[in-house]
Structures are given as C-alpha cells and as structure tokens.
Design a binder for these strands. Structure first.
Lengths: 145, 145
DNA sequence: CTTGCTGCAAACAGTTTGCAGAACT
DNA sequence: AGTTCTGCAAACTGTTTGCAGCAAG
C-alpha cells in the first residue's frame, strides 16, 4: 500500500514531467509513515529532525503535489492549520472531531454518501469531493474521570 | 426575524455584562442585512463605506461575539477566509459549493442528520455541531454555454 | 548544459493583540 | 468615576514567492 502510493506518485511525476528528487522521496516516506491528519508543520519538524537541510517551502510545495497526484487530501479543521490525510482513489471517509482532546475518529457511511448524490442530482450539481465533519466530545472527554 | 436576533444578542450581552455600543449595533445591522456567507473583509468594507471610522479589529471581535451569542456561525471553505453565516437556534443547513463560480447552495436533509446522530452514538460521541460541504460544479458551470 | 527544484529569506494575507483615548453605565 | 470598548498600528501565524545556487536529466 505504501508501494502503491509511491508508484502512483511516480506515474503522476512522469506524466507531468516532474523530476525525481531526494527531498520528494523523503517527504513522501515521512508522509506515508505518518498517522492521519498531519499538519504541514508537524511533518516538517519530523523530517527536519533527521534531515536538517529541508526547507519549509519544500514541504508545502510537495504536499500540494501529492494532493494533485491524488495521494493526499487537504483537510481544514477549525484550528487554523491545513492538514493532510492519506487518500486512495475511490476511498473516502469522514471525521468525528473531538473538541476536548482533538482526537479525530474516522467513519464511513454509505447511506450518507448516497443521499449526498441524490441531493446534488436534485440541484444539477456535479460532485467532485465533499467533506463531513462532526464536532463534539468523544466518549472519554464526555466522562470526566 | 431580524428583531429576534437583535433581541437574542441583547439578552446575551446583558447576561455577559457587555455594553451596548454604536459599533455593535451597526455591525449587527449590516450582518443581518447581508447575504449568507460573508467574509469578515466583505462585511468590513461594506460597513466602512458608510461608517468610515470603523476598525478592522472591531468587526473581527464583534463577529466572534455574535458567534458566541449563537446568531452567527463560522464557516471555513477552501478560500483562506473565515466566513460567517446566519444561525438560528436549532436550524441547520449544509452547503453545495461550486468550485467554478463560487456559488453556495444551501440544503437540508433530515435523513443525513439522523444518520450522523446514529454514527455519533455508535462511537459514544456527543455532537455539538457538524458541517457538510459538497464541492463540485453547479448546473451552470457544468454546461459551458 | 539546460531546466527544474531547493533553501533561504522576505513577502503576504488573514487574524489577533497592546495600548491610549473614547464611550458606556 | 470606573471600566469596557474602540481604532490604530504593530505583532503573529500560516503559507507563498522570488531568487541564486544546486542537481537531475
């Protein structure tokens, strides 16, 4: 699955005439080995620890590329930072975001997806992507110990 | 309905011991008379036209207050600006966002809301708020004339 | 050797904050 | 009078951009 993504990126790069560089490999490795929903800063710091030379801008630029290539997806929560999550063609999930501890729980619901399609159809709208975020308190944060 | 909101804000202000000021009245009037999904900048400029003295910061601060008071709601789209929409207790709707012309179509779907509650319950999660945004092309943008 | 990519620093955009004076109560 | 609120400008944060040098093809 990590290999799939690397392959996907190589194909994208080839198609776009992009070069293969040390930095892009490193960033891709770190991104893939990372938990979901990394912010750019988090990823940058992680990489910097073992590859001090790396620049802020490169991480930003590269994550944009990954997004274009379809293996990452931008998510905007309410914390002022852009985060990226892993994306795999076709797959999709939504988020329960705990405002207490910032935990992010993923879920999928086929029926909701279907309803969205119906709504879009009703408005003559062509869906490209969508996002559903539910904010609240997770089980742990609800029950103060 | 505009009166309701004004009343709601007055109650909130009273409860919090906030003062009633000219600026807050003005900003509330403009906010209420505005189309949905104003960005702070848009609102600021609109107000500035007839009330040149008004400050950027005041608009920001006041919109935060409205949000706390429950009559506005922050929405984050993918354009780097925080927008505010009107909120009325209990009422909720979601958005179809056209990436072609930036139109925003609102919709409501009870079944989706119900499914969300079920999902949350399944995870022991207490919903506070949620947001569903569907990005794509609206009918007009799909059909290049 | 040509061109794209990187790192740095500076630029930017949106938002927040500190503070002195103005305005409520 | 006491305190909150405002306007301004400066500070901040996250992100983007310009550019000289580096590196991939």
């Amino acid at each position: 699955m990590i290999l799939e993504k690397k392959k996907a990126f190589n194909e994208f790069a080839a198609a776009k005439g992009l070069r293969s560089t040390r930095q892009r490999d490193i960033i891709l490795d770190f991104f893939l080995s990372t938990h979901q929903h990394v912010s750019v800063e988090e990823l940058y710091l992680k990489i910097k620890a073992s590859h001090p030379g790396i620049g802020h801008a490169t991480v930003y630029r590269t994550l944009k590329l990954f997004t274009e290539a379809g293996l990452a997806r931008e998510i905007l929560l309410h914390d002022g930072q852009t985060r990226y999550e892993h994306a795999l063609a076709g797959e999709h999930h939504d988020h329960l975001v705990c405002t207490g501890c910032n935990a992010i729980i993923e879920f999928e619901d086929e029926t909701i997806e279907k309803l969205q399609k119906e709504i879009a159809a009703r408005h003559g709208f062509m869906i490209r992507r969508h996002k559903l975020e539910i904010y609240g308190l997770c089980a742990l944060c609800r029950a103060p110990r």
